[in-house]
Amino acid sequence: MSDPSDTARSPRFRSALDQLVNFKPGKPVRSPEGHSYELAANESPYGPLPAVREAIAEAASGVHRYPDNNCAALISEISGRLVVPEENIAVGCGSVGVSQMLLEAVVDPGDEVVYAWRSFEAYPILTRLSGASAVEVPLRDGVHDLTAMADAVTERTRLIFVCNPNNPTGTVVHGPELEAFLDRVPAQCLVVLDEAYREYVRDTRSPDGLTLAQDRPNVVVLRTFSKAYGLAGLRIGYVVGHPLTIGAIRKAYLPFSVNGVAQAAAIAALRSEDELMAQVEATVAERKRVSEALAAQGWSVYRSQANFVWLRLGERTQDFGAHCGAAGVAVRAFAGDGARVSIGSPQENDAFLAAAAAFPGRP
């Protein structure tokens, strides 16, 4: 046990920390038969492609050197893939690292950051660490309420996150609603279209953020290599926007925070896109199968456009998470709200569906 007097002798910590709860990955689970299925973190169930493994192995021989701090080769590759100028792109340590760069470039203490809730868990953490006030706007039927979010903007608002598809509900906002929202946001307020799951979207009414950002200097698009590209463990993401905005964001980059192995792997992944997109299509097909099976069991499931599904469980959430864990299936349970379940391999998905069917509180 710690000595109560230690508090008096400790450094003075920021008051913002009192509002934060550490991000805690789920505990390892295992069934009585020894099975363990990890469906809590929205990871790709597929390992790196051969070309990506080769790039990782080759880059590993140079880890005694500092990486390219400007990520020049990777930015060039992204530029060619998206057909946008290199000056419109900045790279960071995963989408979370890029989000932190955005906040550091835009937000002063006392400013406001608006986002929907429930949404990506990192938003409240990063917002409060930046010294800003978090303005959380409730979802409406699991979807961003863009009208209410626009109404929540004040003269103190400096940044707005729009997670599309939304994590953890998997829902999307459509083009006309999003354009109307962007038209209402003041020019001095930065809107971040977080498209971490863009590759899994099959709803044609959901717009490509890159198109919306073309003529709007206050709109940037956030993407990642962690999901569809299967590089979650290497932590690499990027943001696309107006050169003036990107130039400011690059100033907030933590030097050498994107390592050389990650840069090489991301380049190889972009060059292996046809194979990777075949894996994405397999995940989309499994998402459909899992969603239909859950509906047949009686569950209420949103129409997900991401690589996970969301079950609205309310007070049953913790019991459902524990039940799945006892069956060897790890899911992400948000107490009092619902459970997010990643789409894994067919075998993993079958294990989850069996656990869901056996839950005593099933509808």
Rank of each mutant, 00 (worst) to 15 (best):
R81V: 12
G80E: 08
V239K: 02
A269G: 08
F225L: 01
V106N: 01
V91M: 15
D6N: 00
R235Q: 07
A152V: 09
V113C: 15
L146R: 02
L276A: 02
D3C: 13
D108C: 07
F352D: 15
Q318V: 00
Y229G: 03
D203H: 06
A262V: 01
H35I: 12
W299Y: 11
T245D: 09
P176S: 07
L49Y: 01
A252C: 05
E286V: 08
V113H: 10
D141T: 09
R118P: 09
R271E: 12
R271W: 10
I267E: 03
C93Q: 13
Y66H: 04
S76L: 03
L129M: 00
L139I: 04
P243M: 00
L353Q: 10
P32W: 01
E179D: 14
D215W: 05
Y37F: 04
L139H: 14
S342T: 05
L103Q: 02
P138N: 13
A356K: 06
P138H: 07
A122Q: 11
K288C: 11
W299E: 11
T7A: 05
E54G: 04
T154A: 14
I249S: 09
A327G: 13
D350Q: 08
G131P: 10
I125Q: 05
S31H: 03
L82S: 06
R140G: 05
G314A: 01
F161K: 03
N88Q: 15
A16M: 07
R202I: 13
V290N: 01
A51R: 03
S36M: 10
A187Y: 10
S272V: 15
S2D: 12
R362Q: 07
A306T: 08
A134L: 14
T204M: 07
